[in-house]
Design a protein around this nucleic acid. Structure first.
Lengths: 201, 201
DNA sequence: ACGCTATGTTTACGACATAAACATTAAACG
DNA sequence: CGTTTAATGTTTATGTCGTAAACATAGCGT
């Protein structure tokens, strides 16, 4: 039987070239339209045009593939936050970073869940992306070097936006843009007793 | 063949009596030692001493069984919060309710996740348990009837504790009791610009 | 007493994750 | 260059899963 190769110059090699990233890409693409629990290793392999067991040449099991996808997702989330921080002027950076966080979650629900379900655990110290590190540094400075307080503020802010994102994803509160703004309100949150909003970095 | 019944008076009837709650109970018990994704309908049925397909006489599918379990879990969470609110004196009720929320999540990780993954969606209005309603009413009063502001405070508080619980469950921040207290700190959160902590209900 | 309907069981099917054995090809080494 | 070898694919097989369909039993209203 004559193998009719595709007309394109892309020589259909037995070996794939970079199956590992192809699988991660296929998985991330699938996550855009399907929830996490509907992702099957077999489907991802099919999408990548490869047999199911080929996956095991690159990942010890399904979990590891999901972890690789989560890693990539974490990077994308970090990039979204960094962009938001970069584009905002100092007094609004904290709030903008939070808004970017929640918006990313709403735009990529399944991926956002995956990041926190299968992402690497960062025990001990909390994990950071660039934006978070930047914000904490600026907050520390604004708090006259009170690191403990800046740390607390960072965690409180993280918990707030993470909870907001999760509750919206789970349909507990309306995924409404105006509501996001009302919850992440620099004027109402973290106000120092002396007057003036706190993390005005 | 002679059916050797168990010596106990519990006559092994063909019909179960209350299989529905037995299944929910078995599922909840299983969730105490295994994560959600390891829960199989077949295992739950086995634990209840019944064939797998018997489940379908009481639930249309696995999802519905999980939803019933989530409902029961939601009630337990609400009860835990209510107890905390009841036992705390007014100025600390808000914070104690939050602490109870996070403690419940840490004590029942799989159940807590289930509640928010498979629980009923409450679109439009946010869902409440008794404790939340009570707190919001008191906050409204303390804010001289400013309902919008009380609502915002309630949502902010919910997002904060929910995010804290989730991040701890996912191993992003240490599930440490002292840390919970530091994050849920009435003295640092929601402070009104005029002075004095805000939701001091 | 009898039959209807509740609620169970057995059997069957296709999808899944993964293990084991086998096939192909790219790269290392002569 | 040609040969060996390790990397990277495929095929086949196993046991578990959710669920549909057909069948069995028993409790209840008449």
């Amino acid at each position: 039987m004559v193998t009719v190769s595709t007309s394109k110059a892309e020589t259909r090699t037995y070996h794939h070239g970079d199956l590992r990233s192809a699988l991660v890409d296929a998985g991330l693409k699938a996550l855009e339209i399907a929830p996490l629990e509907e992702l099957s290793l077999r489907q991802i392999a099919r999408d990548a045009g490869v047999s199911a067991t080929a996956v095991y040449r690159h990942f010890p099991d399904k979990r590891a593939l999901l972890a690789a996808m989560a890693h990539e997702g974490f990077d994308r989330l970090g990039a979204a936050q960094f962009n938001a921080v970069e584009q905002a002027s100092p007094p609004l950076r904290f709030a903008e970073s939070g808004r970017a966080y929640v918006r990313f979650a709403l735009a990529n629900p399944a991926l956002f869940r995956l990041i926190f379900t299968y992402g690497e655990q960062f025990e001990g110290d909390h994990p950071d992306n660039l934006a978070a590190r930047l914000l904490r540094a600026q907050t520390t400075e604004q708090r006259h070097g009170n690191v403990a307080e800046a740390d607390r503020l960072s965690l409180q802010a993280w918990a707030l936006v993470h909870g907001l994102a999760m509750l919206m994803l789970d349909g507990r509160i309306n995924a409404d843009d105006a509501l996001i703004d009302r919850i992440i309100d620099p004027g109402s949150l973290f106000v120092v007793p002396g007057g003036g909003t706190a993390p005005a970095v």
